[in-house]
Design a protein around this nucleic acid. Sequence first.
DNA 1: CCGATTTCAGTTAAACTGAGATAA
DNA 2: CTTATCTCAGTTGAACTGAAATCG
Lengths: 150, 150
Amino acid sequence: MASPIGYELKRAQDALSRAMGAALDELGLSVPQYATLWVLAEAPGLSSAELARRSFVTAQTMNEIICGLEGAGLVARRPHPGHGRIKQAHLTAAGRSRLGAARRRVAAIEARMVSGLNPAQQRQLSVWLGACRINLQPLELSRTTPRLTP
Amino acid sequence: MASPIGYELKRAQDALSRAMGAALDELGLSVPQYATLWVLAEAPGLSSAELARRSFVTAQTMNEIICGLEGAGLVARRPHPGHGRIKQAHLTAAGRSRLGAARRRVAAIEARMVSGLNPAQQRQLSVWLGACRINLQPLELSRTTPRLTP
DNA sequence: CCGATTTCAGTTAAACTGAGATAA
DNA sequence: CTTATCTCAGTTGAACTGAAATCG
């Protein structure tokens, strides 16, 4: 057990998180904000609650993230037509532009991170990481998808 | 860019961190405390400052971790003979026993995490993760090893 | 005086739980 | 009445910076 795989995983993610944080900070974005813009670009009109579910955080946490983005003018929210309580979020023009800049920076960092691996190896690494996550999920499956055990 | 590798990395580490946190919590340990016990078992007698360097945190953060471990009776510290200010930390009998129990739980979690991979693939994954970390380091190299640019 | 170690105090980022108001 | 959404308020864990005391 010279250097456990969990240790390598944590160190690698720490390094990525730091690099992304520094790059996004220059754009006035936090990592959670970037992640939320990313989800919202692919699924416009989601509610805060739905965004929270897809990002694996609580509704309160997502509310804080969304409020920050709204205050910065990157996201706008409108009441759902015919369902007054729900607020649908979507990117503003500024939000799309900022996300584009952030994407480019993050893509450059990720490219540097896997620069020693060829495309097939990069795919393999991604697949293995996905398998690791899934292997660990069962124990907390009831927390993230409570609907399966009603 | 369907599912970026950085996303997979973060999700996998999140899952591992949650699983470890839950398992260690039952033993009254936090993840940083476990990591410190681990380092200390392999290098007894280290000072807080040296432990901080090896764990990539500030001396203040390590002080908090060590004080927690000392208060729980898992670590004891004695003044360095002939160097009054330095306190050398080492595991107590209780600390060694607790670390053993924690190790077994963590090993079980890591084994489950990579359960779909054969030993060669596990080694490959570990190597790639190490490469990812190193590829990201140069930009913050001056922070973790300031001695290289005096 | 300088450098390293320890430690007190305050702060931050990012999550959390609790609780309340509202709408379907 | 129940359930889901949104949001205010407080808390937590784990990091950080600043600053002070001590030792060699």
